[in-house]
């Protein structure tokens, strides 16, 4: 009887301990389901993360930011006990490259949290178009997979990643644009510094050194329907957070969409003593206004800015925050030879 009571007591103790270390807000939990609960100390908890059908941050920002935020929140609350996270991507129907890149960056970052080394597993979309998009993006180069990789596609530069300026990648992208648009190096001269500064900012400003995130940028380029489409992202502090950090007193309470719009308009240049700094975003905006780049989307933290064909900036606030910054723009290959 004593032994039984003692065992019951121990079991209760174990259960309490387990519950305590698994605290996360269940109200926020829409995409994660626990598929295996640990009954013994050495058991590993397993959760399944269900990706939304429209797997695109640019086209579905509110749902995707919530989805990624939920994963981040869950892992942060399980940083001391190992969890197997299974990404169920099978229901994805529509996908854009920004979400694939963000998923890769997120996994890389989350492996960096806490002492527990979490295991990440998953499947691929059943939808053929979405599956092809995953394969052609180079996603499989970053994960261990038995799925057959596709051969290099001459119309795509698969996801590249790095830290600070990478001259080889920049050269590769410029040469790709020159070849596709049948133009000369002179026509891509604006593009090289644009991307170089994005890469450099990732290294120099995007991360604070305290965060668990890795100082990497990701870039992907493809040529489709006479358009060269580029997606660039980092998972650092994000532009609104960086601005708030730098200009603490003046920016308190400002909406992030408005902050990003102000940064695009160059309103922060005058606030720094170094006049040659903070030129990156106004320069990008000017290229969009001159229509050298088209369809510019810029997302950072909760801010989402879009510059339309009439060079009008629309700024809005997303429901949830994304880590870092995403740039997406297009080049019209017929307009590159001018």
């Amino acid at each position: 009887m004593w032994i039984k009571r003692r065992n019951l007591k121990n079991l209760k103790k174990r259960k309490n301990k387990t519950n305590k270390s698994h605290i996360y807000n269940p109200i926020e939990n829409n995409y994660i389901k626990k598929t295996k609960s640990p009954t013994r100390k050495r058991d590993i908890e397993e959760v399944t993360v269900f990706a939304p059908e429209n797997f695109s941050i640019i086209n579905n920002p509110d749902e995707l930011s919530k989805f990624f935020d939920e994963i981040k929140y869950y892992i942060k609350n399980h940083k001391d006990n190992k969890v197997t996270i299974y990404f169920d991507l099978s229901k994805i129907k529509d996908v854009t490259i920004d979400a694939i890149m963000y998923l890769l960056a997120l996994i890389k970052n989350l492996q960096n949290i806490g002492l527990a080394k979490h295991t990440f597993r998953g499947n691929l979309p059943q939808n053929e178009i979405a599956l092809e998009k995953f394969k052609e993006s180079g996603f499989l180069d970053f994960v261990n997979s038995r799925v057959q990789k596709v051969n290099a596609n001459a119309n795509k530069i698969t996801i590249r990643t790095g830290q600070s300026n990478d001259s080889k990648v920049l050269k590769e992208i410029c040469d790709f644009v020159i070849e596709k648009a049948n133009c000369t190096r002179k026509n891509t001269k604006f593009l090289y510094p644009l991307m170089a500064e994005m890469m450099y900012n990732t290294y120099e400003h995007a991360y604070d050194g305290k965060s668990y995130t890795i100082k990497n940028w990701y870039i992907y380029v493809e040529c489709e329907n006479n358009l060269i489409k580029t997606t660039f992202l980092d998972t650092g502090l994000g532009i609104p957070s960086t601005l708030r950090k730098r200009f603490k007193e003046t920016l308190f309470g400002e909406q992030e969409g408005k902050l990003l719009e102000s940064a695009l308009n160059g309103e922060f240049r005058s606030k720094t003593k170094l006049a040659y700094r903070n030129n990156g975003l106004p320069t990008i905006k000017n290229y969009a206004i001159k229509k050298e780049i088209l369809n510019l989307h810029l997302l950072s933290n909760k801010a989402y800015c879009f510059i339309d064909d009439d060079a009008k900036i629309s700024a809005k606030e997303m429901k949830n925050k994304i880590m870092g910054t995403i740039f997406y723009w297009e080049l019209d290959i017929n307009g590159m030879r001018g």
Binding site: S164, N165, D166, S167, K168, L170, K171, Y192, A196, M199, Y200, Y203, E204
Partner: peptide
């Protein structure tokens, strides 16, 4: 292919 500001940041 000119690079970043400082030598520590890249080639």
């Amino acid at each position: 292919t000119p690079g970043p500001r400082y030598q520590k940041d890249g080639e």
